[in-house]
């Protein structure tokens, strides 16, 4: 990397001569190396899924959740520094709260995402802080229906039909593009999400992983909830089987 040693890459408040902010790019590196997270926006709901890498068999299964809840019907999956992800989630809850305090209803996701974008962006401005080392997928059902966004460490936030961040994002995006997302039901999307996470997981290189999923839809009464255990296991098993066929 040409940037190293030039001194232009040590602070978020420094541009390089060609106008780049290296610290933000490095923050992206923290995301690119960690477990994949995906989000699907389908006909009648949202599905979030993460590849939770398991480094020890002493860990409690199904604990240590990586998908968080921001509001009754807003879910968040992040990839990168986990502690940073919690910080962002806490802030998002505070933003939701302050919006409700004024308007007596939960914010549309677009509004929440805009506010979060500003928050994340502020950490790219000053030498006294570092940018967030995580990319965040936010999904919700609001007045406009199912919505899905990614917020990047730079503060950039775009809406998506299918979102993928982390190590396996390229392959995941390719898979997401093959789906007719706007025709899938939420339940079908659970199976697709499980399949994609299994597909992008690199068995050869990686440790074990646990599939974690959440959804928002008619079946959850519009709440953001973990995918029920039996459905999760069914999707997990189906994804494993499909992968074996795929390999053969």
């Amino acid at each position: 990397m040409t940037s190293i040693g030039t001194g232009y890459d040590l602070s978020a408040s420094t541009y390089s001569p060609d106008g780049r902010i290296f610290q933000v790019e490095y923050a992206n590196k923290a995301v690119e190396n960690s477990g994949t997270a995906i989000g699907l926006r389908v006909k009648d709901g949202i599905v979030l899924a993460v590849e939770k890498l398991i480094h020890s068999k002493l860990l409690v299964p199904d604990s240590n959740r990586r998908i968080q809840t921001i509001d009754r019907s807003v879910g968040m999956a992040s990839s990168g520094l986990l502690a940073d992800g919690r910080q962002i989630a806490n802030r998002a809850r505070d933003e939701s709260y302050s919006y409700r305090d004024v308007y007596k209803e939960s914010p549309p996701l677009k509004e929440l995402v805009q506010r979060m974008g500003l928050y994340v962006q502020a950490y790219t401005l000053y030498s006294s802080v570092r940018p967030f080392g995580c990319s965040t997928i936010l999904g919700a059902i609001d007045k406009s229906g199912p919505v899905l966004y990614i917020i990047e460490p730079s503060g950039v936030a775009y809406g998506y039909h299918g979102a993928a961040v982390g190590k396996g994002r390229q392959l995941a995006k390719t898979e997401l593009e093959k789906l007719k997302l706007s025709e899938l039901t939420t339940r079908e999307a659970v199976f697709e999400a499980a399949r994609i996470i299994h597909l992008v997981h690199d068995d050869a290189k990686e440790k074990e992983f646990e599939l974690e999923m959440s959804w928002i839809g008619a079946e959850t009464n519009g709440l953001h909830l973990p995918v029920p255990k039996d459905l999760l296991e069914e999707a997990d098993k189906k994804a494993r089987d499909a992968l074996e066929d795929y390999d053969e």
């Binding site: 990397m1 940037s3 190293i4 040693g5 890459d9 040590l10 602070s11 978020a12 290296f22 610290q23 490095y26 923050a27 992206n28 590196k29 923290a30 995301v31 690119e32 190396n33 520094l81 030498s127 006294s128 802080v129 570092r130 940018p131 080392g133």
Partner: peptide, 16 residues
């Protein structure tokens, strides 16, 4: 190592 003096600087590989 230039990247290890404070906790607001990422290394080029995204480490702190």
């Amino acid at each position: 190592n230039n990247y290890d003096n404070d906790s607001v600087t990422y290394s080029p590989t995204g480490r702190l």
